[in-house]
Design a protein around this nucleic acid. Structure first.
Lengths: 145, 145
DNA sequence: TTCACTGCAAATAGTTTGCACATAG
DNA sequence: CTATGTGCAAACTATTTGCAGTGAA
């Protein structure tokens, strides 16, 4: 996908613009996150993909790189149900709901939380970071079980 | 507190009513959860309190007991920010917001999510389990930092 | 008396860290 | 050249499990 290559190039440009170094690890990790798209990959899953592309990149480097990219504001992590956190580009703005029984994840429009975010800000002086946690509950199929 | 003793007695009665055994571990774990009230104790924190009251109760038993009590419907766990899950009585119905910077937890009324829960059920066939995750964001003091 | 519950030790999953070496700029 | 990033091994935190023995009903 040319689209993905362009996206990667843009992200690397952001790093360069901030005066950060571009290393093999950062390039490959970012690339895998771009390629993963709407998949929700955990750190271990990303590490595995990264490692299969470049076996010299150590798992601990992937952990450090993800921290770094998040600090730089390029990516975010999100908690889906009871598995380790997953990572995605920060500009992917949508919400998630996970069925606590079948573990199926569904994507939801980000504006569902707009009103609640407003209420929290107005009445409780709390600025919500939308989307950091998934909603937990039951999908239709699992409701009666 | 007589109130807390009564609450404990009621919970034990529920177990007995279901035909479950009442053991020392179950008694002490439930008692500590009742006494903890609005504190949000992790499994390890509970295990420590339980152990200091009865050193013969092993940490792994506390894990198993918490699972058991949740399966029975007496307690729930909730994810507050980036620490291990915390436990509370199921009939404690309120929401939480955690500041991602100072880690302070604030309690919020449960009805804040009523409308969203309705929308999810109506438009997305998803029945939300309210309160399983805390909101993440920034409290007023940390907003500008 | 019987079977569910528990203690213990060991295994597992996920993540972090110290340090010496490698490398981007 | 030099500070920053990385590999590696080891530590650490949270949790689970197999098994043999204990105790609630």
């Amino acid at each position: 996908m040319d689209d993905e290559n362009a996206r990667l190039a843009g992200l690397l440009a952001q790093l360069r613009g901030r005066g950060e170094r571009i290393t093999a690890a950062r390039r490959v990790v970012l690339d895998e996150i771009v390629r993963a798209g709407e998949l929700h990959l955990t750190t271990e899953e990303l590490a595995e993909r990264v490692h299969s592309r470049d076996p010299s990149i150590h798992r601990s480097t992937v952990y450090r790189t993800l921290d770094f990219l998040e600090t730089c504001g390029l990516i975010d992590h999100i908690h889906l149900a009871h598995r380790p956190p997953t990572h995605h580009l920060r500009d992917d703005r949508h919400l998630h709901a996970v069925c606590e029984r079948c573990e199926r994840t569904m994507d939801l429009p980000a504006d569902l939380l707009d009103e609640l975010a407003g209420t929290l800000a107005r009445d409780h002086a709390f600025t919500m970071r939308v989307g950091h946690f998934a909603f937990s509950g039951r999908c239709q199929d699992c409701l009666s079980v």
